[in-house]
Design a protein around this nucleic acid. Structure first.
Length: 465
RNA sequence: GGCGGCAUAGCCAAGUGGUAAGGCAGAGGCCUGCAAAGCCUUUAUACCCCGGUUCAAAUCCGGGUGCCGCCUCCA
């Protein structure tokens, strides 16, 4: 079965065909680094990570570019209010973002180009658009005339005549300077509020609009026409719509073949908002002692086009699921002797996993296949029907699937400290003496210290509680 | 006002015309000195509501209700 993606452009499932055999150009809209990213943002980045990892699993060489938006209204306001230079502010949050990416085991993109490092590229593209008659100037700012691009509205399937100016409440329409409210800024002329944030260019003194950065940088690093562009559904209109307009008008080429967008995340069934008290950054959650891999699990385990309901019950369930996988791996690692090689079970799991993932990254179905595998192999182990080779085959398969999901790795927990192990040994002696009151007392002590004892035929196993 | 998405057990979540995957939690059993882990069995007369199409619908159509999103810089 062929790898298939749902393309926002056509609103249909399409077999994936890269422009170049075996290679994929992937551009994903990254964060605006004016604050710590929240878990809703990471839902998108985790989805993109899954996409990228699965493409690599499928043998594609993926060139993944994620931009960092480091000049924008909120940033400029903060600079003005705090007196900090723009770069100092963005450097701090960029560093925080990369820490968070590592925490969630997101595979880093090959490149994270920042908007402010690509002003010349943006100026160049705006000049081309100007020369081709797609722009107009007003009070020093340059706007893109959407009426000059016949395909405008194709991605969002928007009927332009129905657009209500300012309906989102995000802008003050009265202050808007474009000829038509639907037109968008390519270049914004400097005004006093911008303070020190400006560039002197052939277009005048000012700063770029938001949309142009993605067009300029994706073209620079992936070429004018590339394979996949991702983002959250909120990016469909206007951001991606505008990117298409700019890029296709500037280069005369098709911009992107496949547009993939993920649905939003809600928390406890409600839109995440500070007033509801359900707004979380990754740091907030890790600070509560939640295993980051459990967070990754919750963000990942819902199909990307479904709304994801992040709840603490779901985190708890994910944590238990993780334990199940980790315990399973421990059990496999302890297998000794000859026995079945489990080749059939491994092959069945692999085939089901791939079939589900091929189908527009159906991760829920794919994880279902993994859990069926865990159950079937556990059963084989119970019946003494598996040997070292089988266990190794199973572990190898989990490693391969972990390369895709990032949630099937062994526990990285440390060994229990010596004083705990002393108590474990003392408990063993008490058990041999059939002094169960003492052995249970020692087990409770060990548990109180944060370690769980599981007795196995080969002796006690000690795990972090 | 316009447009789009979603609604499946206590919770999370697949399935999108042929009779409800999987996980977590719960119940019973096996194993264990007792536990834990694991295994087995079990847990939705049925998929938001009301109509309709069909031999057959969670799945298609129409109408509701609720939630989420977009309609100029939010993943």
């Amino acid at each position: 079965m062929a790898l298939t993606f749902y393309n926002t452009l056509t609103r249909a499932l399409e077999p994936f065909k890269p422009l170049q055999e075996g290679k994929v150009g992937l551009y994903t809209c990254g964060p605006t680094i004016y604050n710590f990213a929240h878990i809703g943002n990471f839902r998108a980045y985790v989805f993109e990570d899954l996409l990228r990892r699965y493409l690599e699993y499928r043998g594609f060489e993926v060139k993944h570019i994620m931009n960092l938006t480091d000049v924008e209204d909120k940033l400029i306001r903060t600079c003005r209010e705090t007196g900090q230079p723009l770069k100092a502010l963005t450097a701090k949050f960029a560093a925080a973002f990369f820490e968070d990416v590592a925490t969630l085991k997101i595979k880093p993109a090959q490149l994270y180009p920042a908007a402010t490092d690509h002003i010349p590229e943006m100026v160049e593209m705006i000049k081309v658009l100007r020369d081709k008659g797609h722009t107009y100037e007003d009070k020093g700012s340059i706007y893109f005339k959407i009426g000059s691009f016949p395909g405008y509205g194709g991605l969002g399937h928007m009927d332009l005549s129905q657009l209500q100016s300012g309906a989102s409440g995000r802008v003050d329409a009265d202050e808007y300077e474009a000829e038509e409210a639907r037109d968008f800024a390519l270049w914004k002329a400097w005004d006093a509020d911008d303070g020190e944030v400006y560039w002197e260019t052939e277009l005048g003194k000012g700063r770029p609009g938001w949309h142009i950065e993605c067009s300029a940088m994706s073209t620079k690093y992936l070429g004018p026409h590339f394979d996949i562009h991702c983002g959250g559904v909120d990016n469909i209109f206007p951001h991606h719509e505008n990117e298409i307009a700019q890029s296709e008008c500037a280069t005369g080429k098709t911009f992107v073949n496949y547009w993939l967008h993920c649905a939003h995340l809600v928390v406890e069934g409600r839109k995440m908002s500070k007033s509801l008290g359900n707004f979380f950054t990754l740091r907030d959650l890790v600070g509560k002692g939640i295993d980051p891999v459990a967070i990754r699990w919750v963000l990942l385990a819902t199909h990307y086009r479904q709304p994801n309901n992040f709840s603490f019950d779901a985190v708890e369930a994910a944590k238990q699921s993780l334990n199940r996988i980790r315990d399973f791996r421990i059990r496999l690692a302890e297998v000794r002797g000859d026995g079945a090689d489990l080749a059939e079970l491994c092959e069945k799991c692999r085939a089901e996993f791939e079939a589900e993932m091929d189908s527009d990254l159906n991760i829920s179905g794919a994880l279902g296949a993994v859990f069926n595998f865990v159950r079937d192999v556990n059963k084989a182990l119970d019946e003494g029907g598996a040997g070292v080779r089988g266990a190794q085959n199973a572990l190898d398969l989990l490693d391969r699937l972990d390369a895709v999901t990032g949630i099937l790795a062994p526990s990285t927990e440390e060994e229990a400290p010596a004083e705990i192990m002393d108590k474990v040994l003392a408990r063993q002696q008490a058990r041999r003496d059939r002094n169960f009151a003492e052995s249970d007392r020692l087990r409770d002590e060990v548990l109180a210290a944060g370690w769980v004892i599981e007795d196995t035929p080969k002796g006690p196993r000690v795990k972090k509680a």
